[in-house]
Amino acid sequence: MSYGRFVDTGTLARISSLDLLAKTVVEGFVSGLHRSPFLGRSMDFAEYRAYQPGDDIRRVDWKLFCRTDRFYVKEFEADTNTNLTIALDVSRSMDFGTGAVTKFDYGRYLAACLGYFASKQKDRIGLVTFDSEIVDFVPPAAKHLQVVLHTIDRIEPGGGGSLREPLLEVVDAVRRRSMVVLISDFYEDPETVIRTAAGFRHKGNDVILFHLLDPAELRFDFDGELDLRDLETGAREAVMPDVLRDQYLELIREHTRTLDRSLVEAGIDYTLVDISQPLDAALYSYLSSRLYAMKAR
């Protein structure tokens, strides 16, 4: 299967409507599949679950309420209406890109596409945006696609800081077992990232990490003398890229390797995404994880 025919990120950037963008990408992606192994649903009862705010009250089992005077929601086995919570990093470091789009835009597109895709699957879609704290939280719901897309559309790059605190808040916010997609550039200590992602995992969630990096961050192909300014802290550092390149590349390669190795060991999907590449690679990674989740149940 060739992904080259999909619309590149430069073209996507010119599509103003996030809804249309997601539809374009996902429909194109889906039509490329001969047969989707992920469609279909089951009505086999699985369990009762205590009602939580945000649950559709139509799924409340009223009979059980009459007997117990408590609200329970019925869960079904292999319920295709699984929760998808997209955690999108909107810190200022994401507002960087040397190509047609920034990491922030790419993250927005990816989140929109994943939301649209999940919506097509009849999954419940939720959204958490965060920088140094949670900025927006949309609980997963089947009809929240437009809310999610609207939220994604109006979000702006915010502050910066450590990812640890906001990610822990996201862990707390995702109360139902969900598929959690974490989109960030992960400028954080790998240990912190791994521990936080493992937090999701320990709560029974399936976790996918999309690590967005610009080609400039991957290759550090600057020249001349530079004054690098940190987007989050504003700190400046005078460097000679020619001299510094090897050391920098070694450091970031070690960073991604550590994330990859440790996350895989923890049963967490990790995908390094070059934002100059089309979105389908990321989508394919998502679908692979989705299939794995269905089989696991």
């Binding site: 470091s93 994401m94 960087f96 990491k103 550039d185 400028y187 610009d214 961050e217 600057f222 001349g224 003398e225 530079l226 004054d227 690098l228 300014r229 940190d230 987007l231 989050e232 802290t233 700190a235 400046r236 550092e237 005078a238 460097v239 000679m240 020619d242 001299v243 510094l244 050391q247 920098y248 450091l251 970031i252 960073h255």
Partner: peptide
């Protein structure tokens, strides 16, 4: 020197060599 905005100096500051 050109001023270039960069996502983070996390790895720059870890590099032991201050060539500039």
């Amino acid at each position: 020197s050109r001023v270039v905005r960069f996502p983070s100096l996390m790895f720059i500051s870890q590099a032991p060599y201050r060539s500039m």
